[in-house]
């Protein structure tokens, strides 16, 4: 935080602010290496379903997606050296999506309500896009 105060009101719109350049100079992992790790993770997530284990697929699909997203955000978007304010801001916004999820979830899981019933499966025949929904609820 001390550094934040010191760098306030410096000329900011020049291509590289001195503070960020120096931060990057030492110890930033090579971008190509990050890219390699991302590709390895991609391979793992594609390979996941071949084992046919449900929980493993979920981990390789979504666990890895989160890891990849965090890596892109941290190293490519440089959130690792951005001011903490930005991280809090983005996390708070992302948390809102969870709030939305929690409030809607019970209602989306319902298949019927007052005066309506959700057709469970409606598959239109190929090539007839504007056909009417295939009748009543239920599988066919």
């Amino acid at each position: 935080m001390a550094q934040q105060t010191a760098t306030a009101y410096t000329a900011p719109t020049t291509p590289a602010t001195p503070a960020r350049a120096s931060e990057r100079a030492h110890g930033h992992p090579s971008y190509v290496k990050i890219w390699g790790i991302l590709l390895a993770l991609l391979a793992a997530s594609i390979a996941g379903p071949f084992f046919g284990i449900m929980w493993l697929t979920l981990v390789t699909a979504f666990g890895i997606a989160v890891v990849k997203a965090v890596m892109v955000a941290a190293y490519f978007m440089h959130l690792n050296i951005e001011k903490p304010l930005v991280r809090y801001m983005l996390l708070a916004i992302a948390a809102l999506v969870l709030v939305l999820w929690a409030g809607i979830y019970p209602d989306v899981q319902k298949s019927e309500g007052q005066n309506w019933r959700q057709a469970e499966r409606v598959v239109r025949p190929a090539g007839d896009a504007h056909a009417k929904p295939a009748g009543e609820a239920g599988r066919h």
Binding site: G103, I104, V108, W116, R117, Q118, A119, R121, V122, A129
Partner: peptide
């Protein structure tokens, strides 16, 4: 276009719009 995101007779969810709208 004629999709059915919110039409229950075709598998959509009418409550979903209400939630998105009031959110």
């Amino acid at each position: 276009a004629g999709t059915h995101f919110f039409t229950p007779a075709a598998g959509g969810d009418p409550l979903l719009w209400q939630h998105l709208f009031w959110f």
